[in-house]
Design a protein around this nucleic acid. Structure first.
Lengths: 208, 208
DNA sequence: GTCTATAGGGGGATAGAC
DNA sequence: GTCTATCCCCCTATAGAC
């Protein structure tokens, strides 16, 4: 009655195996699979067995790459936020409106390039243990503050008029991140067009 | 070794019991507990046993009020969307900017009055079986269309200027719903102030 | 580095007593 | 209407072989 489904089945990341080593790539594959599955079905809905099946290994193998399921989620979220902060570059010498447009483009393009990481970061903070949650929340706050600094400089310049700077920061981030809710790769609008449309909306919102 | 924790412990909705009937109220209590727990921890993370403990009944009792866990979630989401649509009233004869301001106030106040239902509706669509998901998505679309109709009328009047009406609809809803992410009852701003600040932002965004 | 096997714990849902 | 008891399934994590 016993069969060999792991061998018989072709899976997304390649043929499964019952023995043999692919150390160089298994780690990243585990992270990729976990990211996609967590984002699609939710952290609690996804089992380590599903992740293993998606990667093409057995469950036990996963524990060579992560201490436990919780650490896997925390690493994904931390990695995403750190990449975001590392990739974002700002020049305080430029006019605030130019900096805001850069931020908008960066945020939308990143959100559409890594929609799963963005979605996960906003949805599964609650699934983290308290200390992990605090660490990720601090990184997110740092990112929000980057936008808030731009708005502050726009107010100082007199090129922006905001009823409440902190609230405007949160409102703009919510609005921009919302693209992940409806954007479709094969939809009516390409990314450049989306950026242009949002820029019209945002420019109006900040009173420019 | 056996104790009677269900009797010994005072729980949130009243004293637990090992027998006895409270038919009139148990149904609503089940829905309230499920809503709160699902919103806080996620649908998959919450067990029927946890819900039962929160209500103060035993697990089996829940199945007198719902066919299964999936139906419980679907009923909560459908109920929320139907309430939203029933409570919203619009007068197409009024100027579009007035209607938009009403929508904004309604959406923010509702979101802050029932933050758990709002959060759940946006986060747990994915946990629904396909037919349930389609039904809820249709109700949500109806709600979005109510806003889009206001924007269309503003464009027709010439009081609003929008680069893309559908996208503006989605952007505004994302922005407004975002209040649930940061608003705190005991925070810096009361609801009226929040409404006023968002109205400034939105008015600018629609080019008024 | 990966596998197999398993320990130990919860989960959803149902049956039948009261 | 509620409780108790139970079926059967799946889960995370670990131990030890290869």
């Amino acid at each position: 009655m016993r069969s060999f489904p792991a061998i018989a089945r072709t899976i997304e990341h390649g043929m499964a195996r019952t023995h043999g080593s692919k150390a160089e790539i298994t780690g990243p594959l585990v992270r990729e699979s976990a990211l996609r599955l967590f984002a699609r079905h939710g952290y609690d809905a996804v089992s380590m067995r599903q992740i293993a099946a998606d990667v093409g290994v057995q469950v036990g193998t996963l524990y060579a790459y992560t201490a436990d399921k919780q650490a896997l989620l925390a690493d994904l979220l931390r990695g995403h936020m750190e990449e975001l902060l590392a990739e974002w570059s700002d020049d305080p010498a430029l006019p605030a409106l130019d900096r805001l447009k850069s931020f908008l483009r960066f945020h939308i393009q990143t959100s559409l390039k890594r929609p799963e990481a963005v979605f996960l970061s906003y949805m599964e903070l609650r699934s983290l243990a308290p200390e992990n949650r605090r660490a990720i929340a601090a990184l997110r706050r740092e990112y929000e503050d980057a936008l808030e600094a731009i708005l502050a400089s726009g107010e100082a310049e007199g090129t922006m008029k905001l009823p409440d700077r902190r609230l405007a920061t949160m409102a703009l981030i919510s609005m921009l991140t919302g693209v992940t809710n409806w954007y479709r790769e094969d939809g009516r609008l390409d990314q450049e067009r989306v950026v242009a449309i949002y820029w019209d909306l945002v420019r109006g919102a900040v009173g420019a």
